[in-house]
C-alpha cells in the first residue's frame, strides 16, 4: 500500500503533472485561438465614444457587482466572491504551491502562513457548499443548471477537500491523500479549458467585447 502510494505520488508529481500542464496550456491556447480566429466584422456605424478604452474598463468593472444588484442576491455575491478569492489565495500563496509553481515559472514569491491558508480553505469550502445549496434550492438557479454545472462544482471542490484532508493527515494515509490531492488538481487543469471552467479566460474577452460594443454607443457598462 505504502509503496503504491509513493509510486502514485511520484507519478502525479512527475509525468502526471507534466501531462496536465501541457493539456492545460495547449487546451487554453486552442480555445483562445479558435475564439480569435472567428473574428468580428468591422462596425461601420460611427462610434460616439472610444470603444477600446470602454472595453478595457468593463473588463475591470465587472469584477464588482453591478449597481443595485448586490442587494438582490447578497448571498450569491458574497459566496461567489469569497470562493474565487479564496481559491486564488490558496493556489498562489501556500508554501508548497509556490514551490511547485517555481519549478514551472522559475521564480517565487512570499507565502501566507499555513494557519491563514487553512482558515481560507475552510471558508472557501463553506462558500462553495453555500453556492451548491443555492443552486439546488433557488428556483432560478435550479432551473438553469444542468449536470455540467454540478460536475464542475465537484472537480473544483475536490482539490480543496483533498488538500485540507492531506494537510490535517485525516481520513487516509498522508502520502495517498497528497497523491489524490495532486491528481485532483491535475484533473482540474485538464478539464479547465474544455468545460464551463474555461470562463476563467473567456470572461476577459466577453467583457471586452460587450464593453466596447456598449461603450461605442456612449454608455459605460
Amino acid at each position: 500500500m505504502n509503496i503504491d502510494s509513493i509510486t502514485l505520488l511520484n507519478w502525479a508529481r512527475g509525468s502526471g503533472f507534466e501531462w496536465a500542464l501541457a493539456i492545460f496550456i495547449f487546451g487554453t491556447l486552442y480555445r483562445v485561438l479558435t475564439l480569435l480566429m472567428l473574428g468580428r466584422k468591422r462596425n461601420l456605424a460611427p462610434a460616439k465614444s472610444a470603444e477600446t478604452s470602454a472595453g478595457v474598463r468593463t473588463v475591470f468593472r465587472r469584477f464588482a457587482p453591478a449597481k443595485g444588484l448586490f442587494s438582490k442576491a447578497p448571498l450569491l455575491h458574497i459566496a461567489g466572491i469569497t470562493f474565487h478569492l479564496g481559491f486564488f489565495l490558496i493556489l498562489f500563496f501556500y508554501t508548497p504551491h509556490i514551490e511547485a509553481l517555481k519549478t514551472v515559472l522559475g521564480f517565487s514569491w512570499p507565502a501566507l502562513p499555513n494557519s491563514v491558508i487553512t482558515a481560507t480553505t475552510v471558508v472557501t469550502m463553506i462558500a462553495m457548499i453555500t453556492l451548491l445549496i443555492y443552486r439546488i434550492t433557488d428556483p432560478v438557479r435550479r432551473f438553469i443548471s444542468d449536470g455540467h454545472d454540478y460536475f464542475i462544482w465537484v472537480i473544483s471542490f475536490l482539490p480543496l477537500l483533498t488538500g485540507y484532508l492531506a494537510f490535517n493527515h485525516a481520513l487516509l494515509p498522508y502520502t495517498l491523500m497528497l497523491a489524490l490531492h495532486i491528481l485532483s488538481v491535475e484533473l482540474l487543469m485538464v478539464l479547465l479549458p474544455f468545460t464551463r471552467l474555461g470562463h476563467f479566460i473567456a470572461i476577459f474577452f466577453a467583457r471586452f467585447y460587450s464593453g466596447s460594443d456598449i461603450g461605442r454607443k456612449g454608455v459605460s457598462s
Binding site: 480555445r31 479558435t34 475564439l35 480569435l36 472567428l38 473574428g39 468580428r40 466584422k41 453591478a66 444588484l69 442576491a73 450569491l76 461567489g80 443552486r135 433557488d138 432560478v140 438557479r141 438553469i144 443548471s145 444542468d146 454545472d149 464542475i152 464551463r196 474555461g198 470562463h199 473567456a202 470572461i203 474577452f205 466577453a206 467585447y209 460587450s210 460594443d213
Partner: peptide
C-alpha cells in the same frame, strides 16, 4: 457566430444574476 459570440458562450457559469 463570431469571436464575441464564442467568448459569450464560453463565459456563462449559470450564476443566474
Amino acid at each position: 457566430m463570431d469571436s464575441s459570440m464564442s467568448a459569450y458562450f464560453q463565459s456563462c457559469t449559470h450564476c443566474g444574476l
